[in-house]
Design a binder for these strands. Structure first.
Ligand code: FES
Ligand code: FES
Lengths: 141, 141
DNA sequence: TAATATCCTACCAAATTAGTAGAATAATGT
DNA sequence: ACATTATTCTACTAATTTGGTAGGATATTA
Protein backbone atom coordinates (compact mmCIF):
# COMPACT_ATOMS: atom_id res chain seq x y z
CA UNK A 1 0.00 0.00 0.00
CA UNK A 2 1.08 3.57 -0.61
CA UNK A 3 2.05 5.47 2.52
CA UNK A 4 -0.02 8.35 3.79
CA UNK A 5 2.87 10.57 2.80
CA UNK A 6 2.47 9.45 -0.80
CA UNK A 7 -1.23 10.20 -0.74
CA UNK A 8 -0.40 13.65 0.64
CA UNK A 9 2.12 14.11 -2.16
CA UNK A 10 -0.48 13.32 -4.78
CA UNK A 11 -3.03 15.62 -3.18
CA UNK A 12 -0.51 18.44 -3.09
CA UNK A 13 0.59 17.86 -6.68
CA UNK A 14 -3.04 17.79 -7.73
CA UNK A 15 -3.53 21.16 -6.08
CA UNK A 16 -0.52 22.54 -7.92
CA UNK A 17 -1.81 21.07 -11.16
CA UNK A 18 -5.19 22.71 -10.60
CA UNK A 19 -3.40 26.02 -10.15
CA UNK A 20 -0.92 25.46 -12.94
CA UNK A 21 -0.12 28.72 -14.73
CA UNK A 22 -1.24 30.93 -11.85
CA UNK A 23 2.26 31.52 -10.48
CA UNK A 24 3.74 30.32 -7.19
CA UNK A 25 1.34 28.71 -4.71
CA UNK A 26 1.86 29.02 -0.96
CA UNK A 27 2.52 25.81 0.87
CA UNK A 28 0.10 26.87 3.60
CA UNK A 29 -2.68 27.31 1.04
CA UNK A 30 -2.10 23.81 -0.26
CA UNK A 31 -1.99 22.47 3.29
CA UNK A 32 -5.29 24.08 4.27
CA UNK A 33 -7.11 23.35 1.01
CA UNK A 34 -6.05 19.70 0.97
CA UNK A 35 -5.99 19.22 4.73
CA UNK A 36 -2.36 18.13 5.03
CA UNK A 37 -0.21 18.78 8.14
CA UNK A 38 1.81 21.87 7.20
CA UNK A 39 5.24 20.91 8.47
CA UNK A 40 4.93 17.43 7.03
CA UNK A 41 3.98 18.91 3.68
CA UNK A 42 7.13 21.04 3.79
CA UNK A 43 9.23 17.88 3.81
CA UNK A 44 7.23 16.36 1.00
CA UNK A 45 7.40 19.37 -1.31
CA UNK A 46 11.09 19.70 -0.61
CA UNK A 47 11.72 16.15 -1.71
CA UNK A 48 9.65 16.72 -4.82
CA UNK A 49 11.67 19.82 -5.53
CA UNK A 50 14.98 18.02 -5.14
CA UNK A 51 13.70 15.41 -7.56
CA UNK A 52 12.98 18.11 -10.10
CA UNK A 53 9.19 18.01 -10.05
CA UNK A 54 8.79 21.46 -8.52
CA UNK A 55 10.30 24.92 -8.58
CA UNK A 56 10.15 27.18 -5.57
CA UNK A 57 10.63 30.81 -4.74
CA UNK A 58 11.27 32.27 -1.30
CA UNK A 59 9.96 35.44 0.23
CA UNK A 60 6.96 37.59 -0.71
CA UNK A 61 5.25 36.35 -3.85
CA UNK A 62 7.01 33.03 -3.36
CA UNK A 63 5.71 29.50 -3.25
CA UNK A 64 5.78 26.34 -5.30
CA UNK A 65 5.15 25.75 -9.00
CA UNK A 66 5.10 22.58 -11.04
CA UNK A 67 8.27 22.53 -13.09
CA UNK A 68 6.60 20.63 -15.92
CA UNK A 69 3.08 20.40 -17.30
CA UNK A 70 0.76 18.04 -15.38
CA UNK A 71 0.66 15.98 -18.56
CA UNK A 72 4.39 15.33 -18.29
CA UNK A 73 4.44 14.00 -14.72
CA UNK A 74 3.73 10.28 -14.55
CA UNK A 75 2.48 8.62 -11.39
CA UNK A 76 5.19 5.96 -11.24
CA UNK A 77 7.87 8.62 -10.95
CA UNK A 78 6.13 10.28 -8.03
CA UNK A 79 5.59 6.99 -6.23
CA UNK A 80 9.24 6.06 -6.62
CA UNK A 81 10.39 9.32 -5.06
CA UNK A 82 8.03 9.43 -2.10
CA UNK A 83 7.05 5.82 -1.54
CA UNK A 84 9.95 3.78 -2.88
CA UNK A 85 9.91 0.65 -5.05
CA UNK A 86 6.86 -0.23 -7.13
CA UNK A 87 7.80 -3.88 -7.55
CA UNK A 88 6.60 -6.36 -4.94
CA UNK A 89 10.05 -7.84 -4.43
CA UNK A 90 13.47 -6.16 -4.27
CA UNK A 91 14.84 -8.64 -6.80
CA UNK A 92 12.49 -7.39 -9.53
CA UNK A 93 12.74 -3.69 -8.81
CA UNK A 94 14.09 -1.69 -11.73
CA UNK A 95 15.03 1.33 -9.65
CA UNK A 96 15.69 -0.15 -6.20
CA UNK A 97 17.13 -3.54 -7.01
CA UNK A 98 18.44 -5.68 -4.16
CA UNK A 99 19.39 -9.30 -4.35
CA UNK A 100 17.26 -11.87 -2.48
CA UNK A 101 19.33 -13.83 -0.01
CA UNK A 102 18.82 -17.60 -0.08
CA UNK A 103 17.23 -17.45 -3.50
CA UNK A 104 18.55 -18.30 -6.93
CA UNK A 105 17.32 -15.55 -9.22
CA UNK A 106 17.63 -17.39 -12.51
CA UNK A 107 15.56 -20.21 -11.21
CA UNK A 108 13.05 -18.46 -8.96
CA UNK A 109 9.43 -18.88 -9.91
CA UNK A 110 8.14 -16.27 -7.52
CA UNK A 111 10.48 -13.76 -9.10
CA UNK A 112 9.14 -14.52 -12.57
CA UNK A 113 5.56 -13.89 -11.48
CA UNK A 114 6.48 -10.73 -9.60
CA UNK A 115 8.30 -9.43 -12.68
CA UNK A 116 5.07 -9.88 -14.62
CA UNK A 117 2.99 -7.98 -12.09
CA UNK A 118 5.61 -5.24 -11.99
CA UNK A 119 5.33 -4.86 -15.75
CA UNK A 120 1.54 -4.82 -15.65
CA UNK A 121 1.57 -2.17 -12.93
CA UNK A 122 4.16 0.00 -14.61
CA UNK A 123 2.34 -0.14 -17.90
CA UNK A 124 -0.44 1.80 -16.21
CA UNK A 125 1.42 3.97 -13.71
CA UNK A 126 4.04 5.16 -16.20
CA UNK A 127 1.37 6.12 -18.70
CA UNK A 128 -0.99 7.93 -16.35
CA UNK A 129 -0.08 11.49 -15.42
CA UNK A 130 -1.07 14.15 -12.91
CA UNK A 131 -3.47 15.43 -15.55
CA UNK A 132 -5.26 12.08 -15.52
CA UNK A 133 -6.01 12.23 -11.82
CA UNK A 134 -7.51 15.72 -11.71
CA UNK A 135 -11.05 15.29 -10.50
CA UNK A 136 -12.64 17.00 -13.45
CA UNK A 137 -10.98 14.68 -15.90
CA UNK A 138 -12.63 11.70 -17.52
CA UNK A 139 -10.24 8.84 -17.44
CA UNK A 140 -9.71 7.26 -20.83
CA UNK A 141 -9.19 3.53 -20.41
CA UNK B 1 6.73 -4.41 -1.29
CA UNK B 2 5.93 -7.78 0.20
CA UNK B 3 7.17 -8.29 3.75
CA UNK B 4 9.93 -10.73 4.56
CA UNK B 5 7.28 -12.78 6.30
CA UNK B 6 5.40 -13.12 3.03
CA UNK B 7 8.53 -14.27 1.21
CA UNK B 8 9.05 -16.81 3.98
CA UNK B 9 5.47 -17.97 3.54
CA UNK B 10 5.99 -18.52 -0.17
CA UNK B 11 9.23 -20.36 0.38
CA UNK B 12 7.58 -22.62 2.96
CA UNK B 13 4.57 -23.26 0.75
CA UNK B 14 6.91 -24.05 -2.13
CA UNK B 15 8.64 -26.61 0.05
CA UNK B 16 5.31 -28.17 0.93
CA UNK B 17 4.35 -28.16 -2.73
CA UNK B 18 7.60 -29.89 -3.64
CA UNK B 19 6.79 -32.55 -1.07
CA UNK B 20 3.10 -32.77 -1.90
CA UNK B 21 1.84 -36.31 -1.54
CA UNK B 22 4.64 -37.43 0.75
CA UNK B 23 2.67 -37.04 3.96
CA UNK B 24 3.19 -34.53 6.78
CA UNK B 25 6.36 -32.42 6.63
CA UNK B 26 8.11 -31.27 9.80
CA UNK B 27 8.25 -27.56 10.32
CA UNK B 28 11.91 -27.85 11.34
CA UNK B 29 12.75 -29.54 8.04
CA UNK B 30 11.13 -26.71 6.11
CA UNK B 31 12.91 -24.17 8.29
CA UNK B 32 16.32 -25.70 7.72
CA UNK B 33 15.87 -26.44 4.02
CA UNK B 34 14.55 -22.98 3.26
CA UNK B 35 16.58 -21.14 5.87
CA UNK B 36 13.68 -19.58 7.75
CA UNK B 37 13.78 -18.79 11.51
CA UNK B 38 11.95 -21.70 13.10
CA UNK B 39 9.79 -19.91 15.64
CA UNK B 40 8.80 -17.28 13.12
CA UNK B 41 7.85 -20.01 10.66
CA UNK B 42 5.59 -21.54 13.32
CA UNK B 43 3.54 -18.36 13.36
CA UNK B 44 3.37 -18.25 9.60
CA UNK B 45 2.28 -21.85 9.11
CA UNK B 46 -0.27 -21.44 11.85
CA UNK B 47 -1.83 -18.48 10.10
CA UNK B 48 -1.87 -20.41 6.85
CA UNK B 49 -3.54 -23.29 8.63
CA UNK B 50 -6.22 -21.06 10.13
CA UNK B 51 -6.87 -19.69 6.67
CA UNK B 52 -7.44 -23.23 5.39
CA UNK B 53 -4.33 -23.57 3.22
CA UNK B 54 -2.72 -26.24 5.39
CA UNK B 55 -3.57 -29.24 7.50
CA UNK B 56 -1.45 -30.25 10.45
CA UNK B 57 -0.95 -33.22 12.68
CA UNK B 58 0.63 -33.21 16.12
CA UNK B 59 2.96 -35.76 17.69
CA UNK B 60 5.12 -38.41 16.11
CA UNK B 61 4.61 -38.63 12.37
CA UNK B 62 3.06 -35.20 12.47
CA UNK B 63 3.78 -32.07 10.47
CA UNK B 64 2.15 -29.91 7.84
CA UNK B 65 0.49 -30.81 4.56
CA UNK B 66 -1.02 -28.64 1.85
CA UNK B 67 -4.77 -28.96 2.14
CA UNK B 68 -5.27 -28.45 -1.57
CA UNK B 69 -3.22 -29.19 -4.68
CA UNK B 70 -0.51 -26.61 -5.49
CA UNK B 71 -2.50 -25.88 -8.65
CA UNK B 72 -5.44 -24.70 -6.56
CA UNK B 73 -3.62 -22.19 -4.39
CA UNK B 74 -3.37 -18.79 -6.04
CA UNK B 75 -0.76 -16.25 -5.03
CA UNK B 76 -3.18 -13.41 -4.37
CA UNK B 77 -4.89 -15.43 -1.65
CA UNK B 78 -1.60 -16.09 0.12
CA UNK B 79 -0.53 -12.46 -0.09
CA UNK B 80 -3.84 -11.31 1.37
CA UNK B 81 -3.48 -13.60 4.38
CA UNK B 82 0.14 -12.90 5.24
CA UNK B 83 0.83 -9.47 3.76
CA UNK B 84 -2.54 -7.75 3.68
CA UNK B 85 -4.12 -5.66 0.92
CA UNK B 86 -2.94 -6.01 -2.67
CA UNK B 87 -4.39 -2.67 -3.80
CA UNK B 88 -2.22 0.42 -3.47
CA UNK B 89 -4.91 2.41 -1.66
CA UNK B 90 -7.39 1.31 1.02
CA UNK B 91 -10.25 2.85 -0.97
CA UNK B 92 -9.74 0.40 -3.85
CA UNK B 93 -9.08 -2.71 -1.82
CA UNK B 94 -11.61 -5.46 -2.45
CA UNK B 95 -10.81 -7.38 0.74
CA UNK B 96 -9.55 -4.66 3.10
CA UNK B 97 -11.60 -1.64 2.09
CA UNK B 98 -11.29 1.51 4.14
CA UNK B 99 -12.61 4.92 3.22
CA UNK B 100 -10.13 7.70 2.41
CA UNK B 101 -10.62 10.66 4.68
CA UNK B 102 -10.73 14.03 2.95
CA UNK B 103 -11.36 12.45 -0.40
CA UNK B 104 -14.50 12.13 -2.48
CA UNK B 105 -14.48 8.62 -3.84
CA UNK B 106 -16.84 9.14 -6.75
CA UNK B 107 -14.75 11.97 -8.05
CA UNK B 108 -11.21 10.88 -7.17
CA UNK B 109 -8.88 10.48 -10.11
CA UNK B 110 -6.15 8.79 -8.12
CA UNK B 111 -8.65 6.18 -7.02
CA UNK B 112 -9.63 5.45 -10.62
CA UNK B 113 -6.03 4.83 -11.63
CA UNK B 114 -5.32 2.72 -8.56
CA UNK B 115 -8.40 0.61 -9.31
CA UNK B 116 -6.96 -0.06 -12.75
CA UNK B 117 -3.59 -1.15 -11.37
CA UNK B 118 -5.31 -3.34 -8.80
CA UNK B 119 -7.19 -5.10 -11.58
CA UNK B 120 -4.06 -5.55 -13.66
CA UNK B 121 -2.20 -6.98 -10.68
CA UNK B 122 -5.00 -9.31 -9.62
CA UNK B 123 -5.42 -10.61 -13.14
CA UNK B 124 -1.96 -12.11 -12.76
CA UNK B 125 -1.79 -12.95 -9.06
CA UNK B 126 -5.19 -14.64 -8.95
CA UNK B 127 -4.34 -16.78 -11.95
CA UNK B 128 -0.86 -17.87 -10.92
CA UNK B 129 -0.62 -20.68 -8.39
CA UNK B 130 1.92 -22.35 -6.15
CA UNK B 131 2.51 -24.78 -8.98
CA UNK B 132 3.59 -21.92 -11.22
CA UNK B 133 6.34 -20.78 -8.86
CA UNK B 134 8.01 -24.14 -8.37
CA UNK B 135 11.53 -23.72 -9.67
CA UNK B 136 11.35 -26.62 -12.11
CA UNK B 137 8.30 -25.16 -13.78
CA UNK B 138 8.38 -23.25 -17.02
CA UNK B 139 6.10 -20.28 -16.67
CA UNK B 140 3.56 -20.05 -19.43
CA UNK B 141 2.86 -16.42 -20.19
C1' DT C 1 3.40 -42.29 30.24
C1' DA C 2 7.38 -40.79 27.62
C1' DA C 3 8.44 -38.79 23.40
C1' DT C 4 7.31 -35.90 19.71
C1' DA C 5 5.61 -32.07 17.28
C1' DT C 6 2.22 -28.53 16.73
C1' DC C 7 -0.32 -24.63 19.15
C1' DC C 8 -0.80 -20.57 21.92
C1' DT C 9 0.14 -16.41 24.62
C1' DA C 10 2.96 -13.02 25.36
C1' DC C 11 6.66 -10.53 24.92
C1' DC C 12 10.82 -7.79 22.69
C1' DA C 13 13.96 -5.13 19.41
C1' DA C 14 14.60 -2.87 15.21
C1' DA C 15 12.89 -0.39 11.51
C1' DT C 16 9.69 2.52 9.34
C1' DT C 17 6.16 5.99 9.19
C1' DA C 18 4.06 10.17 10.57
C1' DG C 19 4.62 14.31 12.34
C1' DT C 20 6.85 18.53 15.01
C1' DA C 21 10.08 22.39 16.48
C1' DG C 22 12.82 25.95 15.56
C1' DA C 23 16.38 28.34 13.51
C1' DA C 24 18.67 29.53 8.83
C1' DT C 25 18.29 31.36 4.39
C1' DA C 26 16.65 33.90 0.47
C1' DA C 27 13.66 37.30 -1.90
C1' DT C 28 10.92 41.38 -1.88
C1' DG C 29 9.17 45.98 -0.86
C1' DT C 30 9.88 50.28 1.53
C1' DA D 1 19.49 48.90 5.40
C1' DC D 2 15.61 46.56 7.32
C1' DA D 3 11.30 44.35 8.18
C1' DT D 4 8.44 40.94 6.21
C1' DT D 5 7.46 36.83 4.08
C1' DA D 6 8.00 32.20 2.77
C1' DT D 7 10.95 28.39 1.77
C1' DT D 8 14.91 25.38 3.56
C1' DC D 9 17.44 22.70 6.80
C1' DT D 10 18.61 19.99 10.91
C1' DA D 11 17.11 17.45 14.24
C1' DC D 12 14.09 15.62 17.08
C1' DT D 13 9.84 12.59 18.82
C1' DA D 14 5.77 9.41 18.90
C1' DA D 15 3.25 5.77 16.99
C1' DT D 16 2.99 1.78 14.26
C1' DT D 17 4.61 -2.15 11.87
C1' DT D 18 7.90 -5.72 11.14
C1' DG D 19 10.71 -9.40 12.40
C1' DG D 20 11.56 -11.93 15.48
C1' DT D 21 11.96 -14.98 20.51
C1' DA D 22 10.61 -17.63 24.83
C1' DG D 23 8.26 -20.93 27.04
C1' DG D 24 4.60 -23.49 28.30
C1' DA D 25 0.05 -25.97 26.71
C1' DT D 26 -1.94 -29.35 23.95
C1' DA D 27 -2.55 -33.29 21.08
C1' DT D 28 -0.88 -37.71 19.06
C1' DT D 29 1.60 -41.85 18.84
C1' DA D 30 3.96 -45.80 20.55
S1 FES E 1 15.03 -14.22 -6.30
FE1 FES E 1 13.76 -12.80 -5.29
S2 FES E 1 12.17 -14.08 -4.56
FE2 FES E 1 13.51 -15.51 -5.49
S1 FES F 1 -10.79 8.20 -2.52
FE1 FES F 1 -8.99 7.11 -1.98
S2 FES F 1 -7.47 8.38 -2.83
FE2 FES F 1 -9.26 9.49 -3.28
Amino acid sequence: MLSKKTQYAFRALTDLAENYGKGPIHICDIASRKNIPLKFLENILNELKKSDFLESKKGKGGGYVLKHSPKKINLAAVIRIINGPIALLPCVSLNFYRRCEDCNEENCGLRRVMAMTRDATLKILEKKTLQDILSGERLII
